[in-house]
Design a protein around this nucleic acid. Structure first.
Lengths: 336, 336
DNA sequence: CTGTTAGCGCGTTCAT
DNA sequence: ATGAACGCGCTAACAG
């Protein structure tokens, strides 16, 4: 493998000083056009490019942004990540991505590594285990020296700039929508009951049911997806119990399973049973039926996260901004 | 924002030299236990961690691997990426990810940035535009100083270690499977006719048809997904033409659309029409029907790519390894 | 216009 | 057992 050429070697070849080369490469007005041309030609010839590590050390700035997310397979997170990358690039930043697999230990390590001067700020979606274990110290420690923006998942201990989605509102909107289209008995299905966001969504749902006399509600929570499918199918085909005329999916998986269960048992969407939930948007457009869904606007989340971080980078701000993205019910084929 | 503490400041506080602190932190046998303890305690107290940029510059090694992929929304690429990250981490490397959006310009820029000392090697899935424009010089230039491993997409000009999937074989396997289950007229659908991999898949299909008298074949290629859907639906419901009894999807999108089209028009899977194609595996498991698919084993691709790169990093190897991952038809609900 | 020098943070001889 | 000095590649303040 050929060694990369440095400024020093170019200087030697041209019999000038390293600073002349450096200035020429950076188009300093101090250098004559003739010299600039000579230097640049040779640089191009040897494929010279400034060593980013050295520049970072010298300038004390890396133009890297760290991103930590629990799972790339989650289509919402993947879409947020993509938009983070796009907007970071637009602002001249690169991203360094770590995946935690929802593990606290991985999260701690990622934060440590990234804060060692590798990046100027960190955008992070805290892992589930972090919430379960209620461990937030590692965030606070890092935040003393490195700006942090969190997204998607909130906690009162996480006192940073953040972008999240109005989860309560979206569940309520779906419930309201069902109620206004005359649903009588809503089934809430979830494969993320163990996850904090799953708990919030369930609580919001049960709260709605308790405060409304015109609708009743039931809940199926099951982490094992195949079990979940069985339970849902058993319930919606059970004639001995009150009829389910609407299903609310608390996450992408349970919504998919609910849709498949309805199709497999040949129930008629809308006429017999409606469905609203969370989906993989891109995939949903191609399917039949396309499920009516709660749009969480991952593009906005990603863009806003970058925006908050960069403004924080540019000036040491004191006030914390907790941005909340409004969600929206998008009607497709499975609901009125 | 608090400034990060350096070795220098710790040295000053402890009234020792920087080299003593450095050695103590790295458990050098030259340093007494007493001093080590003193240094480490203070370091911990101040949350000291060595500056990664400085260490990288000093050691001329970053322990970073660059990854360049066209699109994170592609579930195959996303799964490969995830596995690259996992295996990189397992070997003590971090990954820096860039997305090209299938653009040549973005690919060039990404390669340039990454090869400026940021990473020790690069794993890249070349963008589509690169193939269309037949531009491979930028790879060759970078490869002189930085080890490169390509994956998924091959070209004879790309003379690097690579991991790919036996695309021809997988299409042939699907065709064979249809033939052996008595399909008479196979429809090949594709939304990626413009993509090199799409062309290969189509050629393989038409080649199969030409060499087999017992089956006939048709092709629908359409980049606009809604148009594609219309064309597929029109064709499979057109009684004036020969009956289509099998569909082969050339990519995830067209396969999804084909499945949805069949469902929407209430054709019976297997009895009336079969379907095999590429899918988002995770999503496919939750759907009804689950589409019979070609498994490309993204886990293996990711793992192998990291393996090839790291072995290349460890010793300057001369022989090029072009790994090919065997695919497999996985029978689900849409085919015999 | 060009060169010399210092220093970013760290690890590593080589002295002491 | 500890410290002084150098250099990784680069930029910038200061001289000339």
């Amino acid at each position: 493998m050929k060694k990369k050429i440095t400024i020093k070697e170019i200087a030697k070849i041209l019999m000038v000083s390293v600073s002349t080369v450096s200035k020429a490469m950076n188009d300093s007005p101090e250098i004559s056009e003739k010299t600039k041309k000579k230097v640049k030609e040779l640089a191009k010839f040897y494929g010279y490019v400034p060593n980013h590590i050295a520049v970072s050390l010298k300038n004390q700035s890396t133009f890297n942004i760290g991103v930590i997310i629990p799972d790339i397979q989650n289509s919402f997170l993947a879409e947020v990540l993509k938009n983070i990358e796009v907007h970071a690039k637009k602002n001249g930043y690169r991203i360094i991505t770590f995946f935690t697999g929802e593990k606290l230990k991985e999260e701690r390590e990622s934060l440590n590594i990234l804060s060692n001067g590798m990046v100027e700020g960190i955008i992070v979606c805290p892992s589930e285990e972090t919430f379960v274990e209620r461990q937030f110290e590692h965030f606070k420690n890092i935040a003393e020296t490195t700006p942090i923006v969190t997204f998607d998942r909130l906690h009162k201990e996480l006192n940073f700039n953040s972008v999240s989605v109005d989860d309560d509102q979206s569940i309520l909107k779906a419930c309201d929508h069902f109620q206004s289209t005359d649903a009588k008995n809503i089934l809430f299905v979830s494969s993320i009951g163990w996850l904090s966001v799953g708990k919030t969504r369930r609580r919001t749902f049960t709260g709605f049911i308790e405060n409304n006399t015109s609708v009743t509600g039931e809940t199926i929570e099951e982490h094992d997806l195949d079990e979940l499918r069985k339970k849902i199918e058993a319930r919606i085909t059970d004639d001995s119990q009150p009829n389910i005329d609407a299903i609310l999916g608390a996450d992408i998986e349970s919504t998919s399973i609910a849709s498949a269960s309805i199709s497999r048992n040949k129930l008629k969407f809308i006429d017999e049973i409606s469905l609203i939930g969370y989906v993989n948007k891109k995939q949903n457009e191609l399917q039949f039926p396309r499920v009516s869904y709660i749009n969480q606007y991952p593009e906005k989340v990603g863009e806003k996260a970058v925006e908050l971080l960069i403004s924080n980078l540019k000036q040491d701000q004191k006030k914390i901004t907790q941005e909340i993205i409004k969600t929206e019910i998008v009607k497709k084929d499975t609901s009125k």
